[in-house]
Design a protein around this nucleic acid. Sequence first.
DNA 1: CCTTGACCTTCCCGTGACTGGAACCCCCAT
DNA 2: ATGGGGGTTCCAGTCACGGGAAGGTCAAGG
Lengths: 129, 129
Amino acid sequence: MNIGDVATRTGLPAKTIRYYEDIGLIKPLRDDNGYRRFRDQDLHKLNFLGRARALGFTIEDCRTLMALYEDETRASADVKKVARSHMGQIEAKIADLNAMRDTLSHLIDACAGDDRPDCPILQDLGGKP
Amino acid sequence: MNIGDVATRTGLPAKTIRYYEDIGLIKPLRDDNGYRRFRDQDLHKLNFLGRARALGFTIEDCRTLMALYEDETRASADVKKVARSHMGQIEAKIADLNAMRDTLSHLIDACAGDDRPDCPILQDLGGKP
DNA sequence: CCTTGACCTTCCCGTGACTGGAACCCCCAT
DNA sequence: ATGGGGGTTCCAGTCACGGGAAGGTCAAGG
């Protein structure tokens, strides 16, 4: 299978697939004309990567997770550790964003949003005394 | 005031302050020795920028907001529009992250986390059916 | 007077995970 | 022969800085 078909099948852009090869996440074969030839195992890995990335895992986490996936003697504790650490990051980010949203929400509510210049949003940013 | 003092006062790293000058957000004066000399107005702008960035506004949004801040004839509607658009982005991101967290949370709960290899997390990533 | 150390300057590279584009090759159909 | 739709590589850019090198400046201490 060529890269275009793989892109369609996995939903990943061809550029991304080439990038994943660049950084060593997949190793497709090559045809005589230089085209990448993808086997089922490559497809499978790309789907794995797509799902892991959709859950927000970093590329390095993906590398770790794929290694664990392929290691039949893994301990599920190792997987869980990676996942929990990632979830911690996500929760931290959610907390940050919630704080921003709350502040913004108040400011937006307080702003008339008409053609006059008075604006509590700008007052706040300017360091309202 | 030199950049170090400004960094201490605003809480922004000196690197960041130089960067903000680079991209034209502030225009401090220069002493004869080439050192930046910051006026109160520069301090004020930097504090403004720091707060806007802390609320997650992009640099371009900050540029817009500062222009509105300095425009006495602004309409608060314009400010509100920028803020609402930004809040929309934040809410979208929160929604994404919440979805990730929920999925991860289920997977993590389902994972034994011991020294055996069976792992629902990897099963899911691998396309479990 | 000289040195030390804390500042300051510019400049360039790296970050993460791609995306866009240029320039070029390959294959099939008309 | 030509056109179009694949594929290939490589380079540059994204966003908002951070790290670090190489070198100029300044106040204090010996």
